[in-house]
Design a protein around this nucleic acid. Structure first.
Length: 270
DNA sequence: AAAGACACCTGTCCGC
DNA sequence: TGCGGACAGGTGTCTT
């Protein structure tokens, strides 16, 4: 489900219900996520949630006693419901709030995570190696160009590498490369500074636009209020292998790069 | 060090 | 209708 836009849309959606709220109770229904949910997560009990930040695709819930870190993996969803709503299949974690509402984590595949850290520096093994945020000035063409020198990996794998830049997942990598006219298999080191400038701008643009439209709803992503995202109708290539290119009408080509489905136009992307 | 394969887990879809 | 296999928005870890 979630790439950076979907996580950001989730953050904005749940924040009004959580900020300044006191946690009444913490429930773990299934601790077997990517990493086991630690028993210390119970320290959230009685805490006031001061703020919610996003770093890459991680959400950080700040409290006086520490920080809860959430990740949605491939299929995770967070939603705010009335605490008396019946649980759904694959609800694994719940924060009961003073308001009578609850934050619930539902994750079919359990690739997501819930962790607890007394202080932010304890989360270094998860966060320290991450590259810059794509929507900041730290992510710019000079930086990526430098980083790409001597890298023989395909440009698609390169921009999906969290050490290079965070938050560019499979959907938006496909889209940004199409927008930039770059063949997804081209070696990262063989792309000029000028082309990187175009690519960087397109990555920023596609992510920002997707956030504005509430994310991409493919199968089951929904915003905190249950509404779908509206970016799916904007997709130029992702999920469209065999269909016609919206620019030139040529049939789009599908292939696998690094075990991820890739779609591009042989005509428009060189 | 870098690149690629694989693992985690469940659900869905497609062909036989 | 059932069964097997491929595939799905992510990312840590292992093998070359």
């Amino acid at each position: 489900m979630p790439e950076l836009p979907e996580v950001e849309v989730t953050r904005m959606g749940i924040s009004p219900y959580l900020i300044s709220q006191t946690v009444k109770k913490v429930a773990v229904y299934n601790p077997n996520m990517r990493w086991p949910i630690p028993a210390e997560i119970a320290q959230l009990n009685g805490q006031v949630i001061d703020k919610i930040e996003r770093r890459a695709k991680y959400l950080l819930l700040y409290c006086h006693a520490g920080i809860a870190l959430l990740h949605l993996g491939m299929s995770g969803k967070l939603c705010v419901v009335n605490s008396n709503e019946p649980l759904k299949k694959h609800d694994h974690f719940e924060l009961f709030l003073q308001s009578g509402k609850s934050l619930r984590l539902n994750d079919t595949r359990r690739f997501g995570a819930v962790l607890w850290f007394s202080e932010l520096s304890d989360a270094d093994h998860v966060l320290a190696h991450l590259g810059p945020e794509p929507l900041t000035d730290h992510f710019n063409s000079e930086y990526v160009y430098q980083k790409a020198q001597k890298r023989q990996v395909s440009i698609k794998t390169f921009i999906m590498d969290n050490k290079v830049v965070v938050g560019v997942g499979n959907i938006y990598a496909n889209e940004a490369l199409f927008m930039s006219g770059i063949h997804p298999k081209k070696a990262a080191a063989k792309i000029s500074l000028a082309k990187y400038k175009v690519l960087v701008e397109n990555i920023k643009q596609v992510l920002a636009k997707a956030i504005k439209q509430g994310g991409t709803t493919l199968k089951d992503f929904s915003q905190a209020d249950g509404k779908p995202g509206y970016f799916a109708q904007e997709l130029m290539v992702y999920g469209r292998a065999g269909e016609k290119c919206k620019k030139c009408d040529l049939e789009l080509t599908g292939l696998m790069i690094g075990q991820r489905a890739t779609v591009y136009c042989k005509n428009c992307q060189k």
